[in-house]
Design a protein around this nucleic acid. Structure first.
Length: 201
DNA sequence: GTGCGGATGAACT
DNA sequence: GTTCATCCGCACT
């Protein structure tokens, strides 16, 4: 199946891109172990103008510099000292937009995901939530700033398209610190999908 | 150098 | 609903 083209990631309309990523397949191959799943939940972070973004106000640090790179790279960071969160860097070089991947539906390498999560049975919480899916797919800071058309982590288009009436937008999770921007409806998910982190908000 | 707190998840009561 | 694990990025001194 085809990996997403470089041009896909150059779209500066990060909210459009966050919606378009729903239905795409995220894969990792780490230590020879292949895992993959359908993206079912995303959030848009709109660079320097978004109070919830790490790049708000043009903040440029060792951590955020990859956000300013051209679209099509990964941005992985450690949250709460425990969880690695995976983002897709988007927009042309110099515009630090990103899309947080918050939920995937496992498709490939489910046995590997179960082992990484210390689970015996497949339950939604294996990959529902950004920290959970990163652990299941073996994503950590070693996968920061990687080319998403590479061999370790990539995104494919397998032709899955959710109709608009199945896509819900709502406020983003965990960004209360962003003041009025915490109210922006820049979270997108597939209605009714079990691998969405918090369907009720 | 210091201190605060976070784009969370799991285990509690 | 509440607690807490556990680290480092970031702002400020």
């Amino acid at each position: 199946m085809p990996k997403l083209a470089y041009s896909f990631y150059q779209n500066a309309e990060v909210n459009d891109l966050a919606v378009q990523l729903l239905g795409k397949l995220l894969f990792t191959r780490i230590g020879g172990e292949l895992t993959g799943g359908i993206i079912v939940e995303t959030e848009a972070y709109k660079g320097i103008e978004d109070k919830a973004s790490h790049a708000y106000g043009g903040r440029f640090t060792n951590r955020t510099q990859v956000m300013y790179e051209e679209g099509g790279l990964s941005y992985v960071y450690l949250c709460y000292g425990i969880h690695h969160l995976f983002n897709v860097v988007t927009a042309p070089k110099g515009i630090p937009h990103a899309v947080l991947i918050r939920g995937i539906e496992p498709v490939t390498g489910i046995d590997v995901m179960l082992r990484r999560r210390n689970m015996l049975l497949l339950k939604p919480n294996i990959t529902a939530g950004p920290g959970a899916l990163s652990k299941a797919m073996g994503i950590d800071k070693d996968l920061n700033a990687k080319d998403l058309s590479g061999e370790e982590i990539w995104i494919e288009d397998n032709g899955i398209v959710f109709p608009n009436d199945q896509i819900v937008s709502s406020v983003r999770v965990g960004v209360d610190y962003a003041g009025d921007h915490a109210l922006l409806p820049w979270r997108y998910y597939v209605k009714g999908n079990k691998f969405v982190s918090k369907p009720n908000k």
